[in-house]
Design a binder for these strands. Structure first.
Lengths: 378, 378
DNA sequence: TAGTGGTATGATAGCGTTATCAGGATACCG
DNA sequence: CGGTATCCTGATAACGCTATCATACCACTA
């Protein structure tokens, strides 16, 4: 008989040397020599020769910028096929001073919130024959700028950014240099952006809680200087509460370092220690709300009976949690799609100097169980 | 008083024309003319002139390939600074016949399973001064090939692929043309790959269930032809069951179309209709398990009392579900990192013709509550 | 003095593609 | 027949950069 998994076992795999990242030239770029052997690739000249036409004609057959006789076109394509010709987009890009790619900077790839956004962007880019370069800033201004600089060096056709700070001068500069820029998940006074109406998001969360009778409402958010999204959500919440005769005292506003479930756990511990506890909490990120609810229950607090919780984002799993989460849903895929569409309008030049395109998408409340209202599951 | 959100309301945002994707030349690429006005960018020649050196010297100051006197270097950098010079990586790439980018094809961006993998790859790429291009194949061979073809046209330095089918001839061809290729999430007989030992994953799931006394075990997986990962997991499961005196009858093996929670819901409905039900189910994707468990509970079946469930992947939320999921955890971030490291060894040429690097990472069982064993939360 | 090796710079010639300018061919019109 | 328009093709010259070869200088050795 046989041991269960009859394959060569190699627990660690081949051992890889750890390379020292410091052993490279100090200069900005790494331009190492050509690889030793070089599989010769056919150029458009080879194709042209074989098809018995000039390289220019061959070029036109591929790019379709000028008319080419059907018969010629067939010969060129046949020759290309035989030679395994693949056009060199670097060379084409050098001529056009632009490469068929768009760059995107997201805050963090590890956040499931960004998947649908990237997905939306990618769909549009693919359709438009552009590649998508994705970098993350990890909420560091330095990394954001580094990514943008790289994009520019690659002469990307355009750039989508979720900026980490409200200071967007670097984006203005980039735009001034002729690179179309669209911001998402934030506003941009003189520029194109697509974002969600966070004030409205806060408002609908607050209204819902007021309607359910809550008079003391707490707030959990990312505690980051200059995060206007957080400010807007709080503003919306406060407005709704005020009109409903409810309050959110400053000591009930808890701020987290990041946006992980672990931050929610920490927030729940803080909540539990409050002298006078709010009966409801608006937790402005589902990822955080997940940990928050989890920890409350560990501590013997019931959700929604003892504490009502409203989340934000409506990430995909919120409906399957231990307590399905009532939350403010954002049109994430649409956000990515719209941002990309605006970018391509700029790129294609129909709209180069046009007025700023500023899109404010509307959030909507998804009522589940964490507030104790009618438990519809969307 | 004021209406709650004192900002210009624009529910739909600016109206965008829907562009007809068909109104472009039939040829493969879109090479449109230059944008009307062109912000002139300084070239290395301008920098050189200003610094009083030849362009070659300036080039060397930036790339660090040849020694340049400290004083000269300073002058060049100063000139670059003054002119706002940004090196053109397209031009450099044209010379090197390679661009500082790596391409990555994942199955689907919308799956939270891929986030940590992309994250791992991105970290390595960023460190190595390379950009990461991400495409998704959406499980379509055609899209996979299209992405790879685009990558090749951009002369990417290397490619990471999670192939949709076990037929990897297109990858062999790509490699033969001099593009380093590393496969992940699948094996590749003659090539580099990093994947998880799925047979072992099935085995540890099966062993766990046997140990808990289950004798009838079902299986839920993606029902896709040629999915060797699924086959391996089933094989491992069956081995473990056999040794423990348990069975997984064919009619207890349920296959889904995709890997969404909705597929899990459908699978739960099938399960409920079985004449004789298994007491445990091995659901080979947490996303599916989430829906599966959810629906079982909706139907009044208790987890784990009536049905034990083991998942696969250990996506981030599995611990926060209505029933925290016992699951087979995969080292996703490490998988991405390792794959990228192998790729860069090839790219940097230290290892160009070396033997295949084949890494099999080991999964591990994370015991939570969905099987009724000791409810440790990791 | 001639020879050797290392260092710093430059001139030339591409890398593969397409914009631009210039035709040659064909067709249709009066 | 000449003229004008349309369609197709070609020669030349970039795009911005760097590999390659060549040179000039200095310091040291024999």
């Amino acid at each position: 008989m046989w041991d269960g998994c009859g394959r060569p076992r190699n627990r660690l795999g081949a051992v890889l040397e750890v390379r020292n990242p410091a052993d490279r030239p100090e200069a900005d770029a790494d331009s190492r020599p050509l690889p030793p052997e070089d599989a010769v690739t056919a150029t458009i000249r080879d194709v042209a020769r074989r098809a018995g036409v000039s390289p220019i004609t061959a070029s036109r057959a591929f790019s379709g910028t000028h008319p080419v006789a059907e018969e010629t076109r067939r010969r060129v394509f046949a020759a290309a096929e035989e030679l395994g010709y693949v056009p060199d987009l670097l060379a084409r890009g050098l001529v056009h001073r632009r490469s068929p790619m768009i760059g995107m900077v997201v805050l963090e790839l590890a956040n499931p919130f960004v998947n649908p956004i990237i997905d939306g962007v990618q769909a549009v880019a693919f359709e438009r024959n552009h590649l998508l370069i994705v970098n993350q800033s990890l909420r560091s201004r330095e990394m954001e700028e580094a990514s943008l600089s790289r994009f520019r060096q690659m002469r990307v056709a355009g750039v989508l950014v979720a900026p980490i700070s409200p200071d967007l001068r670097h984006l203005e500069e980039l735009r001034a240099q002729g690179v179309p820029v669209v911001v998402f998940s934030r506003r941009w006074a003189g520029g194109d952006y697509v974002t969600v109406d966070d004030c409205e998001g806060g408002r609908i969360a607050g209204e819902h809680l007021v309607r359910l009778g809550h008079r003391r409402v707490g707030f959990v958010a990312l505690g980051e200087a200059g995060n206007t999204a957080v400010e807007a959500r709080l503003e919306g919440l406060l407005n709704a509460l005020q009109r409903g005769g409810a309050v959110c005292r400053p000591e009930w506003r808890l701020f987290t370092r990041q946006q992980t479930p672990e931050d929610g756990i920490a927030a729940a511990d803080l909540y539990a220690q409050l002298a006078e506890r709010p009966t409801a909490m608006f937790v402005t990120a589902d990822r955080v709300a997940i940990g928050f609810v989890h920890r409350l229950r560990e501590r013997g607090l019931r959700v929604p009976e003892d504490v009502a919780v409203v989340g934000y984002d409506d990430i995909h799993y919120s409906q399957f949690l231990e307590v399905p989460l009532t939350t403010v849903a954002l049109p994430k895929h649409e956000l990515g799609r719209r941002a990309a569409e605006i970018l391509f309008r700029r790129i294609e030049g129909n709209d180069a100097g046009g007025p700023p395109q500023q899109v404010l998408l509307q959030p909507r409340l998804v009522v589940r169980r964490s507030c104790g209202a009618g438990a519809e599951t969307r």
